[in-house]
């Protein structure tokens, strides 16, 4: 149980990931599938962000330990932890995963936009965004031009 609690961030990630994938695969509706896909991508963002978090660490902006904010931060940290991991008495979270995920979010938004645009075009050409009805239309009507 304590193992699960200690890894609760990964539990959330797995839950979101599986939920997103399940929606993507089980839905026949194009819009719902895009929602599932967005959820799936978001879970990866959360995974990266929680990888980069250091317990008690602050944002990676250089902080003087004698400043007010630095002292406030230090008050929350155990001294031996600071001695082991701290730089100048201040512990920072790893900023790199945040930057990576910023890029991944941009990629995800672009994918979402293209996917929804295609869904709009599908609706224009077929009059529906349900995968089953589209397959039915493809079978019955011999390939009219969009």
């Amino acid at each position: 149980m304590s193992f699960l609690l200690g890894h609760f961030n990964y539990l959330i990630v797995v839950f979101l990931m599986m939920g997103g994938l399940w929606i993507t695969f089980s839905s026949r509706n194009y819009i719902k599938r895009m929602i599932g896909l967005a959820l799936f991508q978001t879970s990866v963002g959360l995974f990266y962000i929680s990888l980069g978090k250091v317990a008690g660490g602050t944002a990676a902006i250089v902080l003087d330990k004698t400043s007010k904010a630095g002292e406030a931060l230090n008050a929350h940290l155990s001294p031996d932890y600071v001695a082991r991991a701290g730089v100048d008495g201040v512990v920072y979270s790893n900023p790199l995963p945040h930057v990576l995920i910023l890029t991944a979010i941009v990629v995800g938004v672009a994918t979402l936009a293209v996917g929804l645009a295609i869904a709009v075009r599908v609706r224009e050409a077929y009059g529906t965004v349900e995968a089953g009805e589209i397959a039915e239309l493809d079978r019955t009507e011999a390939g009219p031009r969009a």
């Binding site: 295609i118 075009r121 599908v122 050409a125 077929y126 589209i134 493809d138 390939g143 031009r145 969009a146």
Partner: peptide, 8 residues
């Protein structure tokens, strides 16, 4: 394209 089956 012109073929609507390309969309799905």
């Amino acid at each position: 394209g012109v073929d609507r089956r390309a969309l799905p």
